[in-house]
Amino acid sequence: MTTGPGGRVRVQDEGKRLAAAELGAELGERATLVQFSSAFCAPCRATRRVLSEVAGMVPGVRHLEVDAEARLDLVRRLGILKTPTVLVLDADGRIVRRAAGQPRKADVIAALGQAV
């Protein structure tokens, strides 16, 4: 999952936390993969498969999908510009990684290393 120079989270994301109430579902015990998707997005379907697979492989990790069109408030607040966009949250809901586009499974697993 690439996030830009040095693989760091964008400055606007640093320290931001997302709560279960904002996402409409409980966070993972160790980490949460939050996917912002839209209805006619082909890469979103492939991303859903990858993130679900990884969440199934790593204990305590949960995959949540957010319909970007239905949650424009959250999309705007987080500066989501395209789908799919994936946020990796730690156990406390802090954003530790962010990537736009379809991620590779190996990159998602590596990004989880920062969250757990």
Rank of each mutant, 00 (worst) to 15 (best):
V88N: 07
L27K: 06
L51D: 10
D107T: 07
M1D: 00
G28C: 06
M1S: 00
E22K: 04
F36I: 02
L23C: 12
P43E: 07
A91Q: 03
T3L: 08
L78D: 06
K16S: 10
P84N: 02
R76I: 02
A20M: 08
A46D: 13
L72Q: 10
S37V: 05
V86I: 08
L89C: 06
R30C: 08
V54M: 09
A99G: 14
G24R: 07
T47V: 02
E14W: 03
A110I: 11
D90E: 04
V11Y: 04
L51Y: 09
L27R: 08
A91K: 06
A111T: 08
G28E: 07
R8K: 12
G4T: 13
A21Q: 12
E22W: 06
G6I: 04
V11Q: 14
V88A: 09
V9W: 03
T32P: 13
T2P: 05
R76A: 07
R17A: 15
R10F: 07
T83A: 03
E26I: 04
P5E: 13
A19H: 11
A55N: 09
M1I: 00
V58C: 04
L78P: 02
P5C: 02
V34Q: 11
R48V: 05
A68G: 04
R45H: 12
A19M: 10
A55F: 10
R30I: 08
K105A: 15
A21K: 11
G24Y: 11
L51C: 10
A70Y: 01
G6C: 09
R17T: 15
R77D: 12
V86G: 03
R49D: 15
L64S: 07
R94T: 14
R97S: 15
P43W: 04
L89K: 05
R94I: 08
D73Y: 00
Q12P: 07
A68T: 01
R17N: 12
T83R: 00
C41P: 01
A91Y: 01
L78H: 01
L23A: 10
V88E: 10
A100M: 10
S52W: 05
L64T: 06
G113C: 11
A111H: 09
V108Q: 06
R71D: 02
L27D: 10
C41E: 01
A25E: 14
T83W: 00
S37P: 03
